[in-house]
Each structure stands twice: as structure tokens, then as C-alpha cells.
């Protein structure tokens, strides 16, 4: 470490701060805004909600400590298992699809194509339309009789499914909406691609590497920090899916779109079982945490940083 070199002479006396102490002070000063936010808004709220999960409470009439009863009741609740499988289905369908899809689009749009800007806007636009508008839009696009999608399928001789009115097709419809709005991921890949030094490609070309090799040996490894980010963020986002099922299907038909957060919302904000709702939240938190730990642990093996500071 460079900063450790200059001020290490014992002659400076014991009162002077050690180099590591200076580094620590600088580090904590830089992250002060986040620490402030964490202490005021995150930590307190997390502790309170964890505490609430041990109570039977509606915040007004009852406030009984019941230990882990909410959790044991949860694991016997068929609705909870239903919501778990619905959410897992969405996460495992949506995350890989959106990840690969947005990467492929970003790579294609990073070529020297004419009207590059226009293409980028077309692919990116869906992701900026607000949640409410997207929900309304897709409700009508997926309308089984006169919706645009089934009219389009009819043109090629396919009788489209009933989509949001079908227990089989409602969740795939949500995944379709998710992929349509994956333009944000594409943007991050595009930014990542701009950060790859050109001379790597020149050197590789001189060495006779073809496009396929250049992709696997340069582009993909250099993009791993972005892929890592998108993977974690997509997993967190997918498990928390709520707006679509709340606005479009209200969990139906027959609970086929009852996601974990929707169940949480119903239990908490509609039936006022805040303890039970908090327990759902912490189970969800644990699941997402497990996936994240797995990815973070594995990242040393596959994420490549050109400028890593080990401290």
C-alpha cells in the first residue's frame, strides 16, 4: 500500500495517528452519508420489524408477545407455500432470461450499426414507463379477445392463451413484461462495454484471435463486474415482485399470481396482522440473503476486477 510508506518513522511520536488510522478516518468520512441513512432509516426500521414478527399485533387493539408462533403458523399455511412457489417460478424464469437477453441486446447495439441511437432508445424506452402505466398497458395488450398480442398470434394461425385469466399463462405473462422492461440492465451493460480498453482488442487481433475468442477472453471477463451487479439486483427485484400482481391481477386467477410480497401486503395492510406480515418479510429476506451470499462467495471465482484494492 502506497500510503503506508511515508509516515511510518517511529520518531514522529506516539500522539501522531498511525497510517491505518488515517485511512480509517478518511474511509468513514466518505461513507458518512450512507451511515447516517443506515442509522436513521434502515437499522431502526429493521430491528422494529424483526421485533414485530414476534408479536401478534394490529397496532391498535392487540400487542401480544407470541415468540416464534408467526413463523410456525407460516410454515403450515398453504397460501404461504403457494406464494413461495409462485415467486420462485417468477425469479427463476425472469432472472436468467432478462440477464441473457439484455446482454445480447447490449452486445448487438455496441456494434457499429447505423441509427445506433434510435435502436438504443427503442430498447430502453419500455423500462422508463412508470409502473402504473405499464400495468394498464399490458392489461389491454393481453386482453384475450381483442388484445394486441392475441390478435397478432391469430395472424400467424395461433390461438393465443387467455393470459391473465389462465392459471398456467398468468405468470409467463408477468415474465414477458419483465423481459420487455429489461432495458435498464442493457444500459448498464452498454456502460460496462465502454469501459473496456481498446488496446486489449488490438493486441488480441494482432495475436490472431477471432471474434468468438475476443468475446470469451476479453469482453465477457471485463463485463463480469456488471453481470455480477445485474445478477444480484435482478434476484432481489424478482423476489420482491409486487406492483404487477397488485394492480393487474390482484393475485388471481386462483392465486396463480399471489407473490410473497402481495401476501405480505394483504396480511399486513389489509387484514392488519402486522406480526404475521413481518414474519413473511423476514423469511423472504432470508431466502434472498441465501442467494446473495452464494453469489458473493462464488464471485471470487468468476468476477474480474482490473483495479481491485485489497485492504
Amino acid at each position: 500500500m502506497a500510503q503506508a510508506v511515508s509516515e511510518n518513522s517511529p520518531a514522529r511520536g506516539r500522539l501522531a495517528l498511525s497510517p491505518q488510522a488515517r485511512v480509517n478516518i478518511a474511509g468513514y468520512l466518505f461513507i458518512t452519508p450512507w451511515i447516517l441513512k443506515f442509522l436513521t432509516l434502515n437499522a431502526g426500521a429493521m430491528i422494529v420489524s424483526l421485533g414485530i414478527s414476534l408479536f401478534k399485533t394490529d397496532f391498535f387493539t392487540t400487542f401480544d408477545f407470541i415468540g416464534f408462533d408467526n413463523y410456525t403458523r407460516l410454515f403450515r399455511d398453504p397460501l404461504f407455500w403457494k406464494s413461495l412457489s409462485v415467486t420462485a417460478y417468477y425469479a427463476f424464469g425472469m432472472v436468467p432470461l432478462a440477464l441473457v437477453f439484455s446482454l445480447v441486446i447490449a452486445l448487438l447495439l455496441n456494434q457499429n450499426v447505423k441509427f445506433q441511437g434510435v435502436y438504443r432508445v427503442v430498447y430502453y424506452l419500455p423500462s422508463i414507463v412508470s409502473g402504473v402505466a405499464v400495468a394498464i398497458l399490458w392489461k389491454y395488450l393481453l386482453q384475450p379477445r381483442w388484445g394486441l398480442i392475441n390478435q397478432g398470434l391469430a395472424l400467424v394461425g395461433i390461438e393465443g392463451p387467455k393470459w391473465l385469466f389462465s392459471t398456467t399463462w398468468a405468470m409467463p405473462a408477468f415474465i414477458l413484461m419483465g423481459v420487455w422492461a429489461a432495458g435498464g440492465n442493457m444500459l448498464l451493460y452498454l456502460a460496462g462495454l465502454q469501459g473496456i480498453p481498446t488496446d486489449l482488442y488490438h493486441a488480441a487481433s494482432i495475436d490472431g484471435a477471432n471474434a468468438w475468442h475476443r468475446f470469451w477472453r476479453i469482453t465477457l471477463p471485463m463485463l463480469t463486474p456488471t453481470i455480477y451487479f445485474n445478477l444480484i439486483i435482478s434476484i432481489i427485484g424478482a423476489w420482491q415482485i409486487f406492483t404487477q400482481s397488485y394492480i393487474i391481477t390482484a393475485g388471481g386467477p386462483d392465486n396463480s399470481t399471489l407473490t410473497m410480497v402481495l401476501l405480505l401486503y394483504r396480511k399486513g395492510f389489509q387484514q392488519f396482522h402486522f406480526g404475521y406480515a413481518s414474519a413473511i418479510a423476514w423469511v423472504l429476506f432470508t431466502i434472498v440473503m441465501l442467494f446473495t451470499v452464494l453469489i458473493v462467495r462464488s464471485s471470487e471465482a468468476w468476477v474480474f476486477y482490473a483495479g481491485e484494492v485489497r485492504g
Binding site: M1, Q20, V23, N24, A26, G27, Y28, F30, I31, W34, F38, L41, N42, A45, M46, S49, I232, I233, I236, Q240, F242, M260, V261, L264, Y265, G268, F269, A277, S278, A281, W282, L284, F285, V288, M289, T292, V296, V309, R310, G311
Partner: peptide, 24 residues
Amino acid sequence: IPFKGRTIIFFVLLATMMLPPQVT
């Protein structure tokens, strides 16, 4: 900045994203 506790604190930062906002 390689300050002490950086890795742990960063993981806490990631953890704050994992709790559904509906809870807090």
C-alpha cells in the same frame, strides 16, 4: 479506501436492499 471493516459494512449495505420495502 481500504479502511477497517469495509467488507462487512459493504455487505450490510447490500443487505439493506434485500428486505422488502413494505416491511420497513
